[in-house]
């Protein structure tokens, strides 16, 4: 790890003031579960690390039926899991968080950090840059891309979004609140995740001197929701594919649906194809299967990750069935 200077400001305003205006100068430290390792691997070599440890106001998890759920960016995964209101009103978020199979990561890791963690692409983590280039050529298309994207992978980004929470949050139309030098702004979480076009960009709509402060999730009474992850290991591991599903039901049939895929594209990947296959239908094994097939229909697998197409389809099918079975 390269040396850096450290600051732990007491206010959000101070924190923003300590941040640099271009990527690479400063990094924001929350739980540290991604950043510290990334600094050891010299994936990032900030001159300054700004710790948010004193910003207790960013740690709350609050719910009201009128304004919905507000998750402070510094709330830990445990705090999310432990919230009775989240358990009662957002079972899909609980399922999403349950995919983080480490009590240590749940205790240390924050919701904000979970959304902002950098990709796990092994070329990126080995030092070939966010876009995994070597001798001017992308490594992923001809390389070992077994864990890479099957959607949104026409280049130059091939990694998959690592977030476990984002797909379900996007299903629930969550918004991210950011605080920067010119105040706060709100962005739809579905637009917060972006595919970088150069190695110096990030995977999020955030500026180097902005801080993610809060996630706001509308209340969705009566919506059925579920997450299904296809994971090789029960222990801590990255899913091979995941699907988050939210179903608005009208009687036995789906009036409106949201399907967002995880770990299959450089961003959480909404599937209008799957939604269309569900809307207006009664949920059955057949419609779930059809939604799964529709979700996978436009996949463009790389040389070694064709199997993820099938896994995506199964994840959607099973998430749909679980959502229909489970309550809101």
């Amino acid at each position: 790890m390269q040396a850096f200077e450290y600051a732990a400001p007491k206010t959000l305003h101070e924190a923003v003031g300590l941040l640099g205006s271009s990527w690479g100068e400063t990094e924001i430290l929350a739980g540290g579960t991604d950043l510290v390792s990334a600094m050891k691997d010299q994936i990032t070599t900030p001159k300054r690390v700004v710790s948010l440890k004193h910003l207790a106001e960013l740690r709350r998890v609050e719910f009201s039926p009128s304004s919905g759920l507000r998750i402070g960016a510094l709330a830990t995964i445990h705090e999310l899991l432990d919230s009775k209101e989240v358990q009662e009103n957002y079972p899909g978020l609980i399922q999403a968080a349950d995919g983080i199979r480490s009590e240590q990561l749940r205790a240390m890791g924050t919701v904000g950090g979970e959304l902002l963690q950098r990709p796990r692409c092994w070329y990126y983590r080995s030092g070939f840059g966010l876009l995994a280039e070597y001798k001017g050529k992308p490594l992923v298309p001809d390389g070992d891309n077994r864990y890479h994207a099957i959607f949104g992978n026409s280049g130059p980004a091939y990694f998959v979004s690592p977030s476990s929470l984002a797909p379900m949050l996007i299903c629930l139309q969550a918004k991210a609140r950011l605080h920067g030098p010119s105040g706060s702004r709100e962005v739809e979480l579905s637009k917060f995740f972006v595919t970088p076009t150069s190695a110096n960009e990030r995977e999020h709509d955030i500026k180097p001197n902005e801080i993610l402060t809060e996630i706001v999730v509308p209340h969705h009474p009566g919506v059925h929701m579920a997450v299904y992850e296809v994971r090789q290991k029960e222990a801590l591991d990255w899913p091979l594919a995941a699907a988050a599903v939210a179903l608005h039901m009208s009687g036995n049939s789906v009036s409106k649906s949201a399907v967002v895929l995880g770990h299959v594209a450089p961003v959480p990947w909404p599937s209008p194809e799957a939604e269309e296959a569900l809307n207006g239908k009664e949920v059955s094994e057949e419609t779930a299967e059809a939604a799964g097939k529709a979700a996978a229909s436009k996949a463009t697998p790389l040389s070694k990750n064709g199997y993820k197409v099938q896994l995506t389809s199964v994840a959607v099918k099973r998430a749909v069935l679980a959502a229909a079975k489970g309550g809101a």
Partner: peptide, 25 residues
Amino acid sequence: KVMDDQTGIMLNPNMEFYKLAGIGD
């Protein structure tokens, strides 16, 4: 041990992708 044909390096020299079974596996 995952080796990369293009760069010749080991792609998983860590315990994240050099996967060991966990207690539930």
